[in-house]
């Protein structure tokens, strides 16, 4: 597998920053346009040592369920995101590798600062690691998988209905 060029790394980083911006700003249409048709969106729960394939996840969306999630967010009566949380996320420690001729794996650390104003009016911090699979398509880079590993995923979590 050919090593990544500086230009490729820069393009992947810019793409991840763009995705983060759309998520922060709850721009659902723009965010959805960055996804492939086989997108998998996964936020696991638990300590990772559960061998069962039947372990529940916080989010485990295929493309169709993710489309439903976005439709629900757009209704305006998704109370937990109506109005949308005000958010900004920091992304760092970004590494990227080519895993197929037209696919990359990108990992980064992140922290989302969410002002949850739907009920508790508090700033809530969501730290973790994000892992993407990003595909180069005729339309440009697209996300085919996003896995979000929250550091506190075994503990009690507040409501998380925005795009993490």
């Amino acid at each position: 597998m050919q090593p990544l060029t500086d230009a490729e790394y820069r393009a992947l980083q810019d793409f991840v920053f763009l995705e983060a911006k759309y998520a922060d700003e709850s721009r659902y249409d723009a965010w959805e346009a960055l996804l492939t048709d086989d997108m998998q969106y996964h936020v696991p729960a638990g300590d990772g040592d559960d061998p069962s394939e039947l372990a529940p996840s916080i989010i485990n969306d295929n493309r169709s369920r993710l489309a439903t999630r976005l439709r629900q967010l757009r209704t305006g009566t998704r109370h937990s995101q109506s109005p949308p949380s005000v958010m900004r996320r920091l992304i760092s420690n970004l590494t990227a590798a080519r895993v197929a001729a037209d696919e990359y794996e990108v990992e980064a650390n992140f922290a989302v600062f969410e002002y949850q104003m739907q009920s508790v009016s508090q700033v809530i911090v969501w730290p973790g690691q994000v892992r993407y699979r990003i595909r180069r398509t005729a339309d440009g880079l697209r996300i085919c998988a996003k896995t979000v590993l929250l550091i506190h995923r075994t503990g009690p979590l507040p409501t998380l209905s925005f795009l993490i």
């Binding site: 439903t68 009920s119 979590l157 507040p158 409501t159 998380l160 209905s161």
Partner: peptide, 13 residues
Amino acid sequence: GPSAFLTADDAVI
């Protein structure tokens, strides 16, 4: 769950 289509809204209410 925290991100579910139902209880996320129950929690906020």
